[in-house]
Amino acid sequence: MAKASSSRQAITANRLRDGAVVYLAVDGNWSENLAQAATAPDGDALKKLFDRAAQSARQNLIVDPVAIAVDDVDQTAPVSFREKIRLRGPSVRPDLARI
C-alpha cells in the first residue's frame, strides 16, 4: 500500500470541558470536524496557527495542542494511524464512531 504523502499540517487538541478531539478551524474556532480545519505547510503559516492554538489554551478552551500531518490529496485524512483513531473513535467500537 502506498504511503500517504504529506506537506501540510493541521492543529489538533482536546477540548478542556469534555476532552473531545477538536481541530483548529479556518474561522479560528475549534471544530470536531477535520474537514473544517485550517492547514498549512511547515513554516510561518503553521507557526501562526500554532500561536492561535496557544492563545486558545491560555483562554482555557483546549489543552495539549499539537500539529498533525494531513494527507496531501485528502486533507480530511490524518496521516498517522494514531490520529486516524482519534478522528474516527475506537476501531473496536464502530457504534461509537465519530465519522
Binding site: D18, G19, A20, V21, D64, R86, G89
Partner: peptide
Amino acid sequence: PLRLLNGLYLQLHAY
C-alpha cells in the same frame, strides 16, 4: 497533577 491524584486522565478521545 490534581486531576491525576483523583484518577482522571486525558486519553485519546476524552477524559
